[in-house]
Write a protein that binds this DNA or RNA. Structure first.
Length: 272
DNA sequence: TTCCAGGACCCTG
DNA sequence: CAGGGTCATGGA
């Protein structure tokens, strides 16, 4: 099925290849990715972009949600633009959007992000899908189902190249098979949801916030990592202790309910 | 060869 | 709590 989206200020490249999602590739002029059970092709056209869903059930409503096309982007930009550092980063990185990914896929993918490079994460998530996910078409595989990963041995999952993170993926999946709380996360208040996610083996402060920001649309959550700390040093040399919770409080105080967006722009800017 | 990659865990003091 | 070592893997 083909769908067209009219939307301003949407950069497919910055959004789909940024490191918030790991299953998109640019092939020629098109971006091709696997979303749920579908292969999606996206291409820029005048006034927005065109999508084609191959093999799969993904509809326009699902895509609108996943790609955050319905987001009130101008309001967000306007709100965080009060800050000069953010304004500067927007000059280069406006058009970046925060996706709304599947929570399980995001959880496992970001468990894979621990002490790892984006390049490797991409490769490993791809291999995981190829080895343990359902085949969609010739070269494309769905992200593995939770009960499949839950049934693997550490030896088996390590063949996907995920290293020491494999055991975390398995135990997290096993916990979810026993008690799938991922739907309930959305009902929890921010800090509570954050702490609940941290109960999974392999999920610490930063990864919990990645999942909240990139899957649950919690735009106020800020994954604090080395880059975030560099951002604080460079732009906000104020007195917040070098402790995760304190830094997150500072980020909130600076940018409020869209702090996740603000720091995503700053992150993209400083990482270059 | 060594170091680092969007960290988290575990053990000490 | 704060500070270390450790964990697989690939690329520079």
């Amino acid at each position: 099925m083909k769908y067209e989206f009219k939307v301003k200020n949407y950069s497919l490249e910055k959004t789909l290849l940024s490191g918030q999602a790991f299953r998109w590739n640019k092939i020629g002029d098109k971006y091709v990715g696997v979303v749920g059970d579908s292969i999606v092709e996206v291409e820029e056209v005048p006034g927005g972009f065109a999508t084609e869903v191959k093999h799969g059930s993904l509809g326009k409503v699902d895509l609108t949600r996943y790609l955050a096309v319905d987001e009130d982007y101008e309001s967000i930009i306007s709100a965080i633009s009060k800050d000069k550092a953010v304004r500067d980063s927007l000059e280069t990185h406006k058009g970046y959007r925060i996706l709304r990914q599947n929570p399980y896929e995001a959880l496992i993918s970001f468990i894979d992000s621990a002490n790892n490079s984006i390049r490797n994460i991409r490769k490993q998530v791809d291999t995981l899908s190829m080895m343990f996910g359902e085949r969609v078409s010739e070269d494309y595989y769905k992200f593995p189902d939770v009960d499949v990963l839950a049934g693997l041995t550490e030896e088996e999952i390590k063949k996907a190249g995920v290293g020491f993170r494999g055991k975390y993926m398995i135990s997290t999946s096993q916990e979810l098979v026993k008690n799938n709380i991922l739907d309930k996360i959305s009902e929890l208040e921010g800090n509570v949801a954050h702490d609940r996610l941290k109960e999974f083996h392999g999920v610490g402060d930063k990864i919990a916030d990645c999942v909240l920001l990139f899957a649950y649309n919690r735009l106020d959550r800020v994954p604090i990592d080395v880059w975030t700390r560099r951002i604080f040093e460079k732009y906000y040399s104020r007195s917040c202790k070098d402790k995760y919770e304190e830094l997150h409080e500072c980020a909130s105080a600076l940018h409020g309910k869209y702090a996740g967006y603000a720091f995503s722009f700053l992150f993209e800017a400083i990482r270059k």
